[in-house]
């Protein structure tokens, strides 16, 4: 780069600072500072209503105790299951939409977005009505004669997964669709022309080319699913308490324990961050390799 170009680049940098300033300010006031408060609280001593301003490490010691570890594990298990099922269902759907004609494509995409128009709590409550002991599902199954007495689905782990998949499926389908839609499908024909049957062509060409969508969709589902609170609370049971529920209880139920809630949140954040860093590293290595930086 010569002098002039360097100056232009510097100017662009200065300008971009001005442009990002409002966003930075927003993030600082409403995201960074609250998080710092959480960090500080996690080192304080709990009290029945509020906190005592006395430093302590008891919260972190509590986190490692088995009850909370189980909730953490349950949360990871739920997030993992939700992601896997969303991927298994979402991939074929996204693939089908991506290969449909332009008109059908738009209709299907709108159908996927429509649920967002209804409030999440209302949608969860309709699931409760649908799944309940005397609900639509049991009613219908009994009427057809498939079952003789109602199934206990509400308040089971199955109900939680069912509703989780329902809520998070669009977050899997949309990024997958946007990647699959860009794949040049003549590449598949090229693969078959060169001797690959349908299955081989899929695994050697389509799948690797859709990796980016799988990655994005999985992150979009996995991370919010980890902190799930509303769904387990409304359709789950008290035997499987997820970490999101524990955190909420510790904040609002008396005796309160805000330092513990803070510590649990931070541990969760730390684990998610670790996971993301690992995934992005793997992703970036793949991408660099694609660019030929690593031969």
């Amino acid at each position: 780069m010569n002098d002039l170009e360097l100056k232009a680049a510097a100017r662009r940098n200065r300008n971009s600072w001005i442009l990002t300033a409002p966003a930075l300010l927003w993030l600082t006031v409403f995201f960074l500072i609250p998080y710092l408060i959480v960090v500080v609280y996690s080192f304080l001593t709990p009290d029945i209503y509020e906190v005592k301003f006395r430093l302590s490490l008891t919260s972190y010691l509590d986190v490692v105790s088995s009850a909370y570890l189980r909730s953490l594990f349950l949360a990871f298990k739920l997030a993992f299951q939700t992601t896997a099922i969303c991927l298994l269902i979402g991939y074929p759907v996204a693939y089908f939409i991506a290969r449909s004609s332009e008109k059908i494509k738009n209709t299907l995409l709108i159908l996927i977005i429509i649920p967002f128009w209804t409030n999440l709590i209302i949608r969860i409550f309709s699931w409760r009505i649908f799944l309940s002991y005397n609900g639509v599902l049991n009613d219908t199954l009994m009427r057809i004669g498939l079952i003789s007495s109602p199934l206990e689905i509400m308040r089971t782990d199955l109900a939680v997964i069912l509703v989780m998949v329902y809520v998070y499926l669009p977050y899997m389908i949309l990024p997958l669709y946007s990647v699959l839609e860009k794949i040049d499908f003549t590449l598949l024909q090229a693969a078959m022309d060169l001797g690959a049957n349908e299955a081989k062509a899929y695994f050697k060409v389509t799948l690797p080319l859709s990796a980016e969508g799988i990655f994005a969709g999985s992150i979009l589902v996995f991370i919010p699913a980890l902190g799930a609170y509303l769904i387990p609370q409304l359709v789950g049971n008290q035997q499987s308490l997820y970490i999101g529920q524990i955190i909420t209880y510790k904040i609002k139920n008396i005796p309160r324990n805000w330092p513990l809630a803070s510590a649990l949140s931070l541990v969760l954040l730390f684990l998610v961050a670790l996971l993301l860093v690992l995934m992005f590293t793997a992703y970036k290595r793949r991408k660099d390799k694609l660019k030929g930086l690593v031969a």
Partner: peptide
């Protein structure tokens, strides 16, 4: 089916696999 014919095609837009190196593209068959 195409994959069982002794016939290969040069497509108009070349249709090289973007996620494979030149070597791997040629090695694919």
């Amino acid at each position: 089916p195409a994959y069982r014919r002794q016939v290969n095609t040069i497509f108009q837009n070349y249709s090289l696999f973007p996620h494979m190196s030149v070597f791997d593209n040629v090695a694919f068959p």
